[in-house]
């Protein structure tokens, strides 16, 4: 049964990727990308990677198509037929890379094997001892937020960098963080969409909070929560226009929050330095080691959530401002 699902998902993934090559026209491509994201999220579930599936669904089928659609709204949906395109070189490059990859798999441990080297070294400790050392059931969260918390700090910094980069690239001349004025442009409103979304938004925000504080027990955590929270705000923005959402949450505040989230994470780590322990050692937070881990993980996950939500909202603002400028 598992094998059948596996084969079905993989064939659908291949079909989607092939259609992406064949199709011209960007909107269709974006829809296919989003399908690809959803299919790979499903595949991750069959591979026991529930946290990854959750994130991929939010990113691959949510945020990334949204940004792509906004870009296409700016640049047009036409993908031009090339006059004369050399496909020999790309084909050669792809073939060489592909062959090298296949060679690489030949001495790999077989798929699904339980005695693969990766399961003999490093990983067993996470599975066997994280229960005692960290005290939470979700091993992925334990590794992400404690054993390899420094990587996750790097990840938050990557997100923050992306936010800074997008503002820097898209900033309209002479207005950093100013609230766009109401051009009095009334968008056509669909009553059903309006009402349904309005009801949805509070639940989305509530669900974000649940995901934020539930990451220790099931799949979820700061990143997923941040994406969901941001989606709620973005939905509001799509319904009522950029000026209204900017009045509710002004851009300078969001930018500041993005920085504060990173600082919350990093300063949690600095607390350990002040006590002579290595950076990000949570043991200084409480006398009981497991409580200390719990406190540390909650604090840094909050930092992740705040930064992720703020950066995604910021990026949305930046693109939306260009859209309303272009429509003028």
């Amino acid at each position: 049964m598992e094998l059948l699902v596996d084969i079905a998902l993989l064939s659908m993934l291949v079909a989607t990727a092939v259609s992406l090559i064949l199709v011209r026209g960007l909107v269709a491509s974006i829809m296919l990308t989003s399908i690809y994201g959803l299919l790979s999220a499903s595949f991750f579930v069959t591979m026991d990677a529930v946290d990854v599936a959750f994130t991929e669904a939010a990113v691959g089928a949510g945020v990334s198509p949204l940004l792509l659609l906004m870009t296409v709204a700016l640049v047009g949906r036409v993908e031009q037929q090339p006059r004369k395109r050399h496909i020999a070189f790309p084909l050669l490059l792809v073939t060489v890379t592909g062959v090298l990859l296949i060679v690489g798999t030949l001495d790999m441990p077989p798929f699904g094997s339980a005695d693969a080297p990766a399961l003999q070294h490093v990983a067993p400790r996470y599975l066997q001892q994280s229960g005692e050392e960290i005290g939470i059931p979700n091993v992925v969260t334990s590794v992400l937020a404690s054993y390899r918390a420094y990587d996750t700090l790097g990840e938050v910094l990557v997100i923050f960098t992306a936010g800074i980069a997008v503002i820097l690239v898209l900033m309209l001349p002479g207005r950093r963080g100013s609230v766009p004025d109401d051009a009095g442009r009334q968008r056509p409103r669909n009553v059903v969409v309006n009402v349904v979304s309005k009801i949805l938004i509070p639940f989305m925000l509530l669900f974000a909070l649940y995901v934020q504080f539930h990451g220790e027990y099931g799949p979820g955590g700061g990143f997923q929560a941040g994406v969901i929270f941001a989606s709620g705000i973005i939905l509001y923005g799509l319904l009522y226009g950029l000026p209204s959402v900017c009045r509710v949450i002004p851009p300078p505040v969001v930018e500041a929050l993005a920085a504060l989230g990173v600082l919350l994470y990093a300063l949690t780590g600095v607390l350990a330095l002040l006590d002579g322990r290595p950076f990000l050692d949570y043991s200084v937070l409480a006398t009981d080691p497991v409580t200390a881990q719990y406190l540390g993980i909650t604090a840094i996950e909050l930092g992740v959530g705040v930064t992720v939500a703020s950066v995604i909202i910021t990026i949305f603002y930046a693109f939306a401002a260009h859209l309303s400028e272009a429509q003028r």
Partner: peptide, 12 residues
Amino acid sequence: AGKVSDGAAPIL
């Protein structure tokens, strides 16, 4: 590559 046959999701 991380999948183990008949394994469960890594939530203790």
